[in-house]
């Protein structure tokens, strides 16, 4: 563990990213304490500039809602969508990739065809269609993002499993007569974890961007304040009040940046070999 931290902290960008990410996480956790009033509440005069009224340091939007409150509460949605959808995608990806890689043969062939099939359809376009079909909600957004983002994980895990399968410790387990599923769960999958973790970090970042893009196209969940929603809602105000879209945009940028930096740090720390794969 100390070795891990040592390698991680050698990358100064990663440390910076981690600090930023921790800050974002703290804000997300404490959101209801920092801004107990719902971010939807119209509590100020509409379209106050930042710093114009110190009660609303970042200003208000067209209906008089506090931008700072929106940003703070939006943190939760972005992180939630990012992590939950990635978790789902990773579960599916590890499952498909693990089974395909371990069993090989026709199972591998069928599963890889399916994976290829999902990769053939443009990701964002597919997510847009899925969300439109199942009507926009947090659940449908998470599902859609997960559905379009698992294939890379599956391919990665499959490749790892393929190479691990031939290693001595797996062969030893096979010789000892351990059941297949146990070998898969106990021996192989844990060893595929490092690259998966790195990939997953990047997927969280991508998922946050995808959620923002969906909201921008008008396909966000209308009951939760998210950064994507804020940019989408501020789009028509771009000329009148550019800060309305600049600030959530910067929030997304910083968060995604932080996650990417941490991802790189993890990649360095977990497996120096990985770095060269270019994710």
């Amino acid at each position: 563990m100390t070795g891990f931290w040592k390698r991680f902290s050698r990358n100064s960008g990663a440390v910076l990213g981690l600090a930023l990410l921790v800050l974002v996480l703290v804000v997300a956790l404490l959101a209801p304490l920092i801004y107990p009033v719902s971010p939807w509440q119209m509590i100020g005069a509409p379209l106050l500039d930042p710093l114009e009224d110190m009660a609303f340091p970042l200003g208000t939007d067209m209906l008089g809602r506090d931008i700072a409150a929106g940003l703070v509460h939006g943190t939760r949605v972005s992180l939630l969508v990012g992590t939950v959808s990635t978790l789902c995608a990773v579960l599916v990806g590890v499952g498909v990739g693990g089974v395909a890689g371990y069993f090989g043969g026709w199972i591998d062939d069928v599963l890889m065809r399916i994976t290829e099939f999902f990769q053939t359809i443009p990701q964002l376009a597919m997510a847009v269609v899925l969300v439109a079909i199942f009507t926009p909600s947090l659940a449908s957004i998470v599902t859609a993002i997960a559905l379009v983002s698992w294939p890379p994980v599956a391919r990665l895990v499959r490749a790892e499993v393929l190479s691990l399968r031939e290693r001595e410790f797996v062969e030893a387990a096979t010789v000892l007569g351990r059941p297949t599923y146990l070998i898969l769960f106990d021996e192989i999958l844990p060893n595929t974890l490092p690259p998966v973790i790195v990939t997953a970090t990047l997927m969280i970042a991508t998922a946050i961007l995808t959620e923002a893009a969906l909201s921008f196209l008008g396909l966000g969940d209308r009951n939760f304040m998210s950064w994507g929603f804020m940019i989408g809602a501020a789009r028509s105000m771009l000329r009148e009040a550019p800060w309305l879209s600049v600030m959530p945009g910067v929030a997304i940028l910083l968060t995604v940046l932080a996650i990417n930096l941490v991802g790189e740090g993890l990649s360095d720390a977990l497996n120096p070999r990985l770095r060269q794969r270019g994710e």
Partner: peptide, 20 residues
């Protein structure tokens, strides 16, 4: 969004369903 707030203040439970 405004009507949702307006109704909630007199005791309604309101959610918004997006639609194209």
């Amino acid at each position: 969004e405004y009507v949702k707030q307006g109704l909630e203040q007199i005791g309604f439970t309101v959610s918004i369903e997006p639609a194209d």
